[in-house]
């Protein structure tokens, strides 16, 4: 159909654009980290990387969760086309957030990392979130969506657990000023509640 081809052209153009936009935060952080002009990441560059990457993982998670309510409110069904990419960006940033922690922060000290995961509840929660994202990322391909059928939707409900774990992880990590994680929590609550429909 005529309309379909122009639409798919539209996606063909906008998807790379969003891909680039999604990579921009990482690019900016890398420039700060490796630029000779330096001080881009401040006095504690590892902490800066860890925090910024963690926040971006959470931002992309919330963006992913915003697609469905946005579609419903606006009727813009085409938004669904971008959801997979947003979800994969959440996973991508969570993975490099974890790698920053494991490699730069902990120097790949496996014993120390294992101890953290077991002993520090906020790390346990972060690890839970990341682990649950792995099957979601692996089953995000078109082929897997088709193969899993109805089960795909069931499996991908895990994203709610991931988002809650992510916000909670943020909340528990903060020393005293909980304003920012609470703000993320508020947005998540709105996104989750907007899905709730009284039974007819």
């Amino acid at each position: 159909m005529q309309i379909d081809t122009s639409l798919s052209n539209f996606y063909r153009l906008t998807k790379p654009l969003i891909l680039l936009l999604g990579l921009l935060p990482l690019l900016i952080l890398m420039l700060g980290a490796f630029n000779i002009t330096d001080h881009g990441l401040g006095a504690n560059p590892i902490e800066k990387l860890l925090h910024e990457l963690g926040r971006w993982a959470l931002k992309f998670l919330l963006l992913t969760l915003a697609i469905t309510p946005l579609r419903r409110w606006t009727g813009w069904n085409w938004l669904i086309r971008y959801r997979r990419m947003l979800g994969l960006f959440a996973f991508f940033y969570a993975v490099i957030h974890f790698l920053t922690y494991a490699v730069l922060d902990q120097g790949l000290d496996i014993a120390a990392i294992a101890e953290d995961i077991v002993k520090r509840p906020y790390i346990t929660l972060g690890m839970t979130g990341l682990s649950l994202l792995i099957p979601l990322a692996l089953t995000s391909t078109r082929g897997m969506v088709r193969r899993l059928g109805r089960n795909w939707r069931k499996l991908h409900r895990l994203v709610y657990v991931v988002a809650i774990a992510g916000v909670w992880h943020f909340y528990w990590q903060v020393k005293l000023d909980t304003l920012e994680p609470l703000f993320y929590g508020l947005i998540l609550a709105v996104l989750l509640l907007s899905r709730w429909r009284p039974r007819r």
Binding site: P25, G32, N35, I36, T37, D38, H39, K48
Partner: peptide
């Protein structure tokens, strides 16, 4: 380097991060 003014780009870029 910063004193020489070469650091401006870095400052602008990272200024947008935080």
């Amino acid at each position: 380097i910063k004193a020489a003014g070469i650091g401006v780009t870095g400052a602008v870029i990272s200024g947008s991060i935080g």
